[in-house]
Every structure is written in C-alpha cells, then in structure tokens.
Design a protein around this nucleic acid. Sequence first.
DNA 1: AATCTTCTCAACCGCCTCTCT
DNA 2: TAGAGAGGCGGTTGAGAAGAT
Length: 199
Amino acid sequence: MGRSPCCEKAHTNKGAWTKEEDERLIAHIRAHGEGGWRTLPRAAGLQRCGKSCRLRWINYLRPDLKRGNFTREEDETIINLHRLLGNRWSLIAARLPGRTDNEIKNYWNTHIRRKLLSRGVDPITHRPIDERAPSTTATSSSERKEEEQQQQSGGEESSARRQQEPKCPDLNLELCISPPLRREPSFQLQLGITDSAAE
DNA sequence: AATCTTCTCAACCGCCTCTCT
DNA sequence: TAGAGAGGCGGTTGAGAAGAT
C-alpha cells in the first residue's frame, strides 16, 4: 500500500543477467563485501534492483556454490529436513553446504515431490497416501521415468519398505527449541541436527 | 524436419520479520 | 511503542531446453 517500491523500476533491467552484469556484481562484492543491497546497484554501476543483485549473488555467483546434480544422500537429507521443517527452504539449505534455498525449492518441486508421490507418500504430510494408488498419481512421463529408475537402481527399495520405514540416515532430527538468542542462525544451531553422514 | 508438449530453473513479486531511530 | 527502512523468504512465473509425435 503506502510502501515505496524497493527500487526505481523504470530504470532497472529485468530478466536474465548478462555476463557483464555478473562481472560487475562480482567485482563489487569482492571489493566491498556483501550487504547494502539497496545501494549496491548504483555503486556497482548496475541497472538492477537491489533484491535482484542479492538473489543473483546468493543463487548463482557465490564462489562456494556446489553446482551439479543432487546426490542420493542430499535427496534423503532434504526429504528428512522437509518432514521436520516443512517448506522452510532457507533452513533446509543451511544444512546442505553449497546449496541454495532456491535450488532446493526447485529440486523439491521438480523431482522430490514426484518421487514421494510415486512412492505413495504425501509430499506435504510425509504420510502414506492410503486412498489413492500411487500409480494414479504418477502419470507424467518423468514420473514414470522416476519410478523406472527406482526399480532399476536395485530392488533394495521395495515399495512396502518405502512406505513403512522412512529412511533416516544418521540424522538426529530432534528439535531443541530454546529462547531465541538472535535470528535464524541461532535457531539453526539449536536444531541440533547432527548429520554425521555429512562429515 | 517441423511442430507440439513437457520439463527445468533462473528470476521476479509481494509479504514478513528484524533493526534502528 | 510506533513507524520506516532494509533484508530475507517462499510462492509463482516464463523463457529456453529437451523430448515426443
């Protein structure tokens, strides 16, 4: 309502970033560090919204990002954390070094959600879907592919086992809530998730 | 080879929360 | 305590790629 927009939209670029814009952003952050997103575009000579710069840096340009496919372990970690935290992608991302919340969110929506559905598991509640047969939910070609892959990757994952025994690697997913010291980081520490698998 | 359909993921949008005054 | 500014988050969108017909 009475809120001013985060940036002057009339003079900002939108859409895909160019190589030159990337380089400017990287150079500016290397020189001045992260933060000050509202003033950064002007300082860096970018015709971009500050939020856009932040997103580009966090999701794509950060040097510590791990690109490439998710591993099986990461899959299971995401599923377990989602069961615990729900759609709190930033918290989930905090447990997966090199992965971003956006990346995990996309991966969840495009792969894991279907994977769970094909297993007969409700991706929201993480409980078995009783009423509907799994095959009725997995109708698209990719969903069928997922199923085939799972069958091929060793029959070790029988559907019965999948339904009754959610795999929890070495994750202690118990929540320890204590009075908030500051913001999320402290909360994350309080989570007490000791995924020794990641060690 | 051309067209249509489906999938993927980078980016945007709007709201919420935190911090500062 | 209230209000404003800034950062952060999650949902959604759309362009391009890949696959199917």
